[in-house]
Design a protein around this nucleic acid. Structure first.
Length: 479
RNA sequence: CGGGGUGUAGCGCAGUUGGUAGCGCGCUUGCUUUGGGAGCAAGAUGCCGCGAGUUCGAGUCUCGCCACUCCGACCA
């Protein structure tokens, strides 16, 4: 098939080696560069622009749901980190420590934040006294550090960019609603803007955030059939409040503990976009976050009038879209390949023949479909094409997920499906026993990803032990 | 943290029994080209990952370290 043809040979094909395909893309599309510190990468302009677009949309959604941005320090004193037992146990193995200031050894070592619950709690303890002070709906856009052992660009780095929302509420009910609200914000963003279908669900106890009462997540399936956690939202109950001494006087003049949440998404979403939509010719970016939505390629640009016409089109389109005119002296063929590799959703070709006819050629990245359109109503045509790209990407990603989702009743069935069809999501009932959860992973290689919100209430038997079970679990190999 | 692979020009790689470093792409300049990674010509570019050791001599041999990468275990 012509649309399957590989035009960019600088990129290893997906089928040949998915991992290499991924690293080829992040390098060749100039998203990142490595540095001399393991697990710490330079996010280059093109990669950072994707993140900025994600930030802009998400930040708007946060503001629309009443949140305010703040900025916490990056250091956490050891004694502060130690205040909540589960939390410190969860994070201590992977924190980086600062032990010296200049040449002086510090009285108390400071950890570089792996997450900021403790800092928010310390602050909330200072500013929350009355029910009138609640809720506080805070968010911050910062980087955090976790000393990971094996690292991969965007998917697992030692320092990564994220947003972390931290809210504190008068009642458990309010906090639970907040936890769900923000999970839904993430799901909407992923599906609408990133064109990436996600499964919403709750994590099993063994997979819960350190210190949380309940952890919710959205799980996406990558092109190779592996699962990627794309966002999380945690309900803390009043556990942190108790550990950090956060109390307020309620309307009855009683001193009580408030309830908290936290939720986050990271630059891992860039990795998710790459592995959900990319193909053998490189990146394919959903229009909502693509740094360049329309790449204008002049044809025979040395000829009289071509560049002027191209510039006029660019100036016109720039009012509505993120547009780039490439008037470099590379050949048109080179430019086609280049912008395909960079995942630009729509390419606009403009040559002498088009100009004479009052037309241009639009080519959509995901299916390489060419359309000749009149310059007159170009804005409309492009808006429609961008929508087509988004919808096409979503449909393809959903199709891949459905093709790779297996309903299984036994361990043997899981192994058979995975062997026959490749990695993917396994849907199977679970009795709730952690021993079974571990055993499934040991025997099949797939771990529990989440307990989905929909699809519950089925009666049956545990995929592992055979005892009665009614909890449906999505299992998968995870990034 | 365990197991494998790789470090030589910006990128991809070659470099024989140890003898003082090369190819392709890219880059610079000029001309010709331009509807799917153009052609010719002339150029520039190296702490051969880092540190010890063996040797008259190390990109090459020995030891140590570091980084990247893949596969596991752990995690956004």
């Amino acid at each position: 098939m012509a649309d399957k043809q590989k035009m960019v040979d600088a990129i290893t094909s997906m089928d040949e080696d998915f991992a290499k395909w991924y690293t080829d893309i992040v390098k060749k599309a100039e998203l990142i560069d490595y540095t001399s510190v393991k697990g710490c990468m330079v996010i280059r302009p093109y990669g950072y622009a994707i993140w900025e677009n994600m930030q802009k949309i998400l930040d708007g959604m946060f503001k629309a749901t009443g949140h305010e941005n703040v900025c916490m320090p990056m250091f956490i004193p050891e004694s502060l980190l130690n205040k909540e037992k589960d939390h410190v146990e969860g994070f201590a193995p992977e924190v980086a420590w600062v032990t010296h200031g200049g040449n002086e050894k510090l009285e108390e070592r400071l950890c570089v934040r792996p997450t900021s619950e403790t800092l928010f709690c310390e602050h909330y303890a200072n500013i929350v006294q009355s029910y009138r002070d609640l809720p506080k709906l805070y968010n911050q856009w910062v980087s955090v550090v976790r000393w990971e052992k094996t690292t991969r660009p965007f998917l697992r780095s030692r320092e990564f960019l994220w947003q972390e929302g931290h809210t504190i509420h008068a009642t458990a009910q309010e906090a639970i609603e907040e936890t769900e609200r923000m999970l839904n914000v993430y799901a909407t963003f992923c599906e609408r803007d990133l064109a990436m279908p996600v499964v919403k669900g709750r994590k099993t106890d063994s997979d819960k955030f350190a210190g949380a009462e309940a952890t919710y997540a959205i799980e996406a399936l990558m092109h190779d059939g592996k699962a990627l956690q794309a966002g999380t939202s945690h309900y803390f109950g009043d556990g942190f409040a108790k550990a950090f001494g956060i109390q307020y006087l309620d309307k009855e003049n009683k001193l009580v503990h408030p309830h908290q949440t936290s939720w986050g998404v990271t630059t891992r979403l860039i990795g998710a976009v790459i592995m959900t939509h990319g193909d053998d010719n490189g990146l394919v970016l959903p229009p909502a976050v693509a740094p360049v939505q329309v790449a204008i390629i002049p044809i025979a640009q040395h000829k009289e009038g071509v560049l002027d016409a191209a510039r006029a089109v660019r100036d016109r389109l720039a009012e509505k879209f993120r547009v780039k005119l490439d008037d470099s002296d590379n050949s048109p063929g080179w430019k086609f390949s280049e912008y395909e590799m960079r995942g630009v959703p729509v390419r606009l070709e403009l040559g002498p023949r088009d100009i004479e006819a009052g037309n241009c050629v639009l080519v959509t990245r995901h299916n390489r479909e060419k359309t000749v359109v009149a310059l007159d109503n170009l804005e409309e045509a492009i808006a429609q094409k961008l929508q087509e790209v988004r919808d096409g990407l979503y449909a393809a990603a959903l199709e891949n997920r459905e093709k790779r989702t297996y309903d299984c009743k036994t361990i043997d069935e899981i192994n058979a499906k995975l062997a026959e069809n490749g990695d993917g999501f396994v849907r199977a009932l679970w009795c709730g026993d952690e021993a079974c959860e571990d055993k499934v992973k040991e025997l099949t290689g797939v771990g529990s990803r989440c307990i989905p919100f929909d699809g519950q209430g089925q009666e049956g038997t545990c995929v592992c032990c055979g005892k009665p079970a009614n909890t449906l679990v999505y299992w998968g190999k995870a990034y």
